[in-house]
């Protein structure tokens, strides 16, 4: 199993793997952006309590939270072409990345919809009432008052989701997508230096997720600047912490 450990290979593999970093990041960015759209569509029926759709979105969220991402990847890879065949669209020549991004988008869409729901519910009810009182329409109140505040609340959860998504993309190689992990597989089996490859790959993932974490932390502090001006900072902070705790309980993925 493999050859003797050789540090030179590690240094040699780092740039080779880094040249595939943009594909990994592209998967993450595209799936999170798509996931935000999906999440919004899924969250709205539950926020406004629309009868039948509310139930449907519950089932959607339950399914995507209740099955492993690996299974979802395969389901979409094999299932989507069959579904599209019904409407006479041939996707057999489509790039595998399309399926990968779609799978991650649907998966993170479920988590994002929960985050949006929790964050919107986390905005004080009085804010919406005040918006209505000065004559805003429902749409105006949502986009101008609720959304900016909800965004700030949801940043820590979103950060968790993005980092989780980054780590999940390491599974895309199972469909044959050529991102960092896919490249590492070919590098490792070509040179038989498995351990060096995976150490290099882990280092890259570690650095990227640390950078992401720092960025989101900074973003959160910026978006919550206004909170500092509130009279009783200790009380406000405590309230926010409580929210954070309940949110993260529902949203953090182990592993």
């Amino acid at each position: 199993m493999g050859r003797k450990f050789d540090i030179h290979y590690l240094l040699d593999f780092l740039p080779k793997l880094l040249s595939y970093l943009h594909i990994t990041l592209f998967i993450v960015a595209a799936s999170i952006l798509l996931g935000l759209v999906v999440g919004f569509i899924i969250a709205l029926p539950r926020l406004y309590k629309i009868p039948v759709l509310q139930r449907a979105s519950q089932v959607y969220v339950s399914f995507f939270r209740g099955t492993p991402i690996l299974i979802q990847l395969f389901l979409i890879y094999y299932g989507l072409p069959e579904l599209l065949k019904l409407v006479h669209i041939d996707v057999s020549r489509a790039n595998v990345l399309v399926f990968v991004i779609l799978a991650y988008a649907l998966h993170s869409g479920a988590f994002i919809s929960e985050a949006i729901r929790a964050a919107v519910n986390g905005v004080d009810r009085g804010q919406v009432e005040a918006a209505y009182a000065i004559g805003m329409s429902g749409y105006q109140a949502f986009t101008r008052i609720v959304l900016p505040q909800a965004l700030a609340i949801s940043i820590p959860i979103l950060a968790n989701l993005v980092i989780g998504n980054l780590k999940d993309t390491s599974l895309a190689f199972t469909l044959g997508a050529m991102e960092m992990t896919g490249k590492s597989q070919t590098l490792a089996s070509a040179t038989q230096h498995f351990i060096e490859t995976y150490i290099a790959l882990s280092l890259i993932y570690f650095v990227i997720s640390t950078i992401l974490e720092r960025t989101f932390h900074y973003l959160e502090r910026r978006l919550l600047r206004h909170e500092k001006q509130v009279a009783e900072p200790a009380v406000r902070y405590g309230k926010r912490r409580l929210w954070k705790r309940t949110l993260i309980t529902r949203l953090e993925k182990g592993g």
Binding site: L171, T181, S202, S209
Partner: peptide, 16 residues
């Protein structure tokens, strides 16, 4: 370190 790297990496690192 563990929280910053994918679970797959832990498995492969241990395995090899």
């Amino acid at each position: 370190f563990i929280r910053g790297t994918p679970m797959l990496m832990h498995l492969l690192l241990i395995y090899f």
